[in-house]
Design a protein around this nucleic acid. Structure first.
Lengths: 144, 144
DNA sequence: CTACATGCTATAGTGACTGTAGGTTCAAGG
DNA sequence: CCTTGAACCTACAGTCACTATAGCATGTAG
């Protein structure tokens, strides 16, 4: 049906950049589309659906490798969906870990900003807290 | 006092990698240290303090450019600390934005995972939700 | 038929490191 | 004094998911 999508129109529909679509093709996430005699890409609805899947999963924080796996799984609809479930749970756990890490940072940053007396840099609490080697005021220990 | 720190010992103290310290030097965040006749780096306490400052700021989510600015400001202790304060507030705002984005994702992921009936991929809710072009169940609209 | 928007490939840049290759230096033990 | 081997050195590639650029080629509207 809706054939003849140029890469630009497809990008517009999916709210992506043209380069991103070419990048997904290069990464094997999007199948190579038909080409005009002049070599330009022409997409159809199946491509548009697949791109929408990828973008939605990316917005939810799925890494490309996980998306690749989900796309492979969804090509095989009779398999049990345990693996799909576990990929999603991993992403959820990752998101939750990031949230708790950021909450701890937020508390420390808020205290830091609150303590600032707006004087001179020499007495600045913000600088003082950052320079505090002992981390005595610090709640957090993980990484980004 | 505590001179003669090799890059390895400094890395150990600061819980960083050796390469990270060399990277900070290359980026102008750490001043070039003394060298032995054979060309190996030897650090002192001032270096250790500066590295601790950088690491603590990084853990709090300050980007390297912001850290560079804070280090420059702290070299000039008579200046007003308004700029320091505003850099810290920017980082706080950034952290808070990331938290609310992630909270929205968490809600959608949790619902997705909850709806999974552990059947076959063909009927999997997780795949279904991700494929849902309309985003009708989707709370979020921003980027990572 | 001519503009010119859009497309093409290839390559480099982003941020903040991390890892590797291939070689050199240092400190301790024999 | 000499050897061993851990730790050091530089330079560069890789990570992730794009994004941007340069220098052409194509497609379409007027």
């Amino acid at each position: 049906m809706a054939e003849d999508l140029t890469i630009g129109k497809l990008a517009l529909r999916a709210s992506t950049k043209v380069q991103t679509i070419r990048f997904y093709e290069q990464e094997g996430l999007m199948p190579p589309p038909a080409r005009t005699s002049g070599g330009q890409r022409r997409y159809d609805k199946a491509h548009a659906d697949r791109l929408a899947f990828i973008r939605h999963a990316r917005e939810l924080g799925f890494p490309l490798d996980a998306i690749r796996e989900l796309l492979n799984l969804s090509d095989d609809p009779d398999q049990p969906c345990a693996r799909v479930d576990s990929v999603a749970r991993e992403v959820l756990a990752d998101v939750e870990a990031k949230i708790s890490r950021l909450e701890a940072l937020r508390i420390e940053l808020k205290r830091m900003v609150r303590q600032c007396k707006h004087g001179r840099v020499g007495e600045c609490r913000v600088i003082r807290v950052l320079a505090d080697h002992s981390h005595s005021n610090c709640l957090s220990h993980g990484h980004d």
